[in-house]
């Protein structure tokens, strides 16, 4: 019988996946900011970003940031000496905090 992947493995995959996406996101973000020197084009891009689908993807970005950030805090706590027996509890706490912050934040973003 194959073992079910544990919380630690799931956290590892989530942290890695979100980390890669967020690192690669820096490039398009800087590309948009490049147009700060051209107000008309910058505003055109921003108007495009106000479309519902773009706002939904912005909420998705919040989700990625929360997943990576809270998992990062969990890793740092474990590295700083938090007992490994509580790592599942920390994972659950990160998931709950992440979901609460995500829905609160997404609600503000989708207003």
């Amino acid at each position: 019988m194959r073992d079910r992947p544990g919380a630690g493995f799931l956290a590892f995959i989530v942290h890695r996946g979100t980390g890669i996406v967020l690192a690669l996101f820096i490039l398009p973000h800087l590309y948009i900011l490049y147009f700060l020197g051209d107000p008309a084009r910058y505003e055109a891009i921003r108007r495009f970003c106000s479309r519902p689908l773009a706002r939904l993807s912005e909420a998705g970005l919040l989700g990625l940031v929360l997943a990576h950030g809270l998992n990062g805090i969990r890793i740092m706590l474990l590295e700083a000496g938090a007992p490994s027996r509580i790592q599942k509890t920390l994972f659950r706490a990160a998931v709950i905090a992440g979901l609460l912050l995500f829905f609160a934040g997404a609600r503000l973003m989708m207003r």
Binding site: R55, E58, V65, G72
Partner: peptide, 23 residues
Amino acid sequence: GLLLVLLLAVHFTVIHFERGGQE
């Protein structure tokens, strides 16, 4: 990483949460 947690909290609060990030 720790610094980014703080900076991103400020960034999201100022840019994305304010009036939904849109006008």
